Structures are given as structure tokens and as C-alpha cells.
Amino acid sequence: MKPVVRRTVLATVAALALGAAAPSFAQEIKTRIIRFGYGLNEQSNQGRAAKVMSDAIAKASGGKMKMRAIGAAALGPDTQMQQALIGGAQEMMVGSTATLVGITKEMALWDTPFLFNNTQEADAILDGPIGRKVMDKLEEKGLVGLVYWENGFRNLTNNKHAVTKLEDLDGVKLRVMQNEVFLSSFKTLGANAIPLPFSELFSALETKTVDGQENPFNTILSSKFYEVQKYLSITNHVYSPWIILASKKWWDGLSKDEKKVLMDAAVAARDYERKDTREEGAKALADLKSKGMQINELAPAEAARMRSKLTTINGGIASNIGQPLWDETQAALAKMRK
């Protein structure tokens, strides 16, 4: 074969080879990669649920959408990830609703002390029209809310005595989150509320700088507070939700089918995460009892007394989020409680 002819043939073969590879390459380019950030580690309830969501997205999209779950706050704390979503630099995340209050004031509804009596009430409100109404407010700020996950009810521990009634909080030096609602609430209930970063809490309990603290069972166990706390009172004084968020800039560019894949996967992960979290919480409570903590449950009548004492705090929240939203929520809860 002449050199010129040989070169022509080789060039033709190479072109055909590239042409054959082109569809595969194009298909790879079309795969949508979703960076999904969360704060806890991979072995946590957040991490397990993120994997459920990731698998559901890959399966429903036939591999055309891939969610990269990135935990341990590797993409930054909740506030940093929220800003990344607003700017379009990150696609999705799950995090606390409490850190969204500065972005969307209606999110303060979920900070209300004794808002929910149980998880059934929380599920019904969060998954219903009220929860959706609060989430929809995020779109004005560049975020899209998909579903709520569960962090859990917060409960009291201390070293002085069991909290069985309102008066038992009098003078208790209680560490609270650096959040004005929490500070004002516990001061109103008679405690000596002391704001401290979580990182300083164990040491403060150990040195008796504070008498007690409040957190979900899972956190009390994993943080080994049972080593420095004697009494655990099941007060369920605040229910803390997490929320799955998407960047609106990014979300608006998705097709209807892609949005459905993500929403369906978020719902499946929510249902898994709530069940997982509740089972983990029940096991944590049993573990805390086996480790010697003295456990009591606050009677409904005493919870009602505390709720009544917080009327002024609740009035401030109602004013902040808007009276119509507050009234709608209270009416929905009253109807469920009949």
C-alpha cells in the first residue's frame, strides 16, 4: 500500500473510532452530578439516610443522575452550605431549620417550645400544608425546600434533681444553645440559662460550671454526658427538624422528570431517616438507663404548665413569623388533639 493511501486509511479508521466513541462520551457528559452536603459523619442517621437517597436517585434515573453525599461538614457548616446553594456553587444539602431563621423568618415556627406533643403531630404539620407553606418561603431567598427530616425532641439532664414539675427548674444552671429563643424560654421557666458552645459543654458539666443541659437522647449518649450527669428528664420541650434544600438557581434548570426523581428520593430517604432516628433514640434511652442515669418522664399537665408560662415567648414568635401562620398552626394542632 502506498504511503499516502495508508495514511488516508489510518485517518479514516481513527475518525470512525472517534465517531464510535462519541455517543458514549456524550452520554458521560450528560450524567448530572449532585453534591449533597451534611454535617454529621457517614455512620450517623444523616449519613445512612443520605445513602438511601443517593441509591434511589441512581436507580430511578438509570444512572443519569448521581448524588455525591459529602458528610462531616466537609463542605462547611450549615450556614456556609446555605450560602453556597443560594449562589449556585453547590446543589443540595440537609441541615437544621434553626440556622435558616436569619434567611426566612417563618422558619422560627419550629423553634417554638412545646409546639408538638409527639412525633405524630410533628409529622402531620411538617408534611402537611403548613410545613409546605413555610418551605415555599425559601424560594424568595434562592433556596428550594424538598422535605423535612428528623433531628428529634430535646430533653433535660442535670446533676441536682429530677425535673418533675416547673418549680424544679428554679436556679438550675442550664447550658442552652446560643439562640435568643432558647435563652429567653429557659429564663422564663426559672432556670439560670447560660449560653455555651457545644464544644465546651462536657467540660462545663464536669467542672460543675453548669448543672445541666438539653439535647436529644442520641446526642446525650454519643457525647457521654451520662458520665457527668445523674438525672435525665424526658421533657420533649422542643422538636428539632432538619430540612433538605436545593439551590434554586440549579433546581430551575432541571427537567420535570429530574425534579420528580429528586423529590421521590427525598421522600423515601425522609421515611427511612425518621424510622432510623426513632429506633436509634429508643436504643440510646435504654443505653443511658443501663449506664445508671435516673430517668423520669414529665407529666402532660406539667408540660402544659410550662407551655402556659411561655405565653410571652410564643407571642414574640407569633409576631415574628406572622399571626396568621401562628393561628393556622395552633388550629391544626388543636384539631388533632381533640
Rank of each mutant, 00 (worst) to 15 (best):
A331Q: 15
P300V: 07
D276A: 04
K338Q: 14
I313D: 03
A60G: 11
K256E: 10
I29V: 11
K291W: 10
N151K: 13
D123K: 15
G128E: 04
I130N: 03
N218I: 13
K141C: 11
L146I: 05
L288W: 04
N158T: 03
I244D: 09
L196K: 14
P216L: 14
N296V: 12
R6F: 14
R175W: 13
N155Q: 06
V261D: 02
F182E: 11
M1P: 10
A162T: 12
A334G: 14
A56S: 08
E302I: 03
A74S: 13
F198Q: 10
V238M: 11
Q178R: 15
N158I: 01
Y38R: 00
L146F: 03
P324I: 02
A304L: 02
I234V: 09
N192E: 10
I70T: 07
S233E: 09
L75N: 08
Q90A: 14
A331G: 08
E167M: 08
G142L: 14
N320T: 15
R154P: 12
S223I: 09
V52M: 02
Y272R: 09
L156G: 04
W250V: 11
Y226K: 04
S44W: 01
I125C: 06
M81F: 09
Q90H: 10
L18R: 05
G76T: 05
G102A: 04
E121V: 03
L109K: 00
A299G: 05
F116N: 00
T312Q: 12
E200F: 06
M92E: 06
A22L: 14
M177R: 15
A284M: 02
F198D: 12
K338M: 12
V144K: 01
L18E: 12
V163K: 01
V52S: 03
T164P: 06
E214T: 15
V163Q: 00
R175D: 13
A26M: 13
Q27M: 05
M107T: 00
M92G: 01
Q120P: 13
G19V: 00
P324C: 04
M65D: 03
Y226T: 05
E297T: 11
D111M: 13
A17D: 07
T188P: 03
Q120E: 10
S203V: 14
L310A: 02
F114T: 05
M135Q: 10
K208S: 11
A284H: 04
A108F: 01
L333Y: 07
L138V: 09
W326T: 00
A21P: 03
M263N: 13
A269H: 05
L169Y: 04
L169V: 07
G212K: 01
M1N: 13
V261R: 01
S290D: 14
K133W: 15
E121N: 07
A21H: 05
W110S: 01
E140S: 08
L126P: 04
E167D: 11
K59C: 11
K133H: 15
A334V: 06
D257G: 08
A284F: 03
A191D: 03
T207G: 15
S44H: 08
A49T: 06
F186K: 00
E106V: 01
T104A: 15
P3L: 09
A331S: 12
S44V: 00
G322I: 05
Y226L: 08
A304E: 05
F225T: 09
L310M: 02
R307D: 15
L174Q: 11
R278F: 03
V101Q: 04
I125W: 00
L146H: 01
A89H: 06
E280S: 15
E302L: 07
D78G: 06
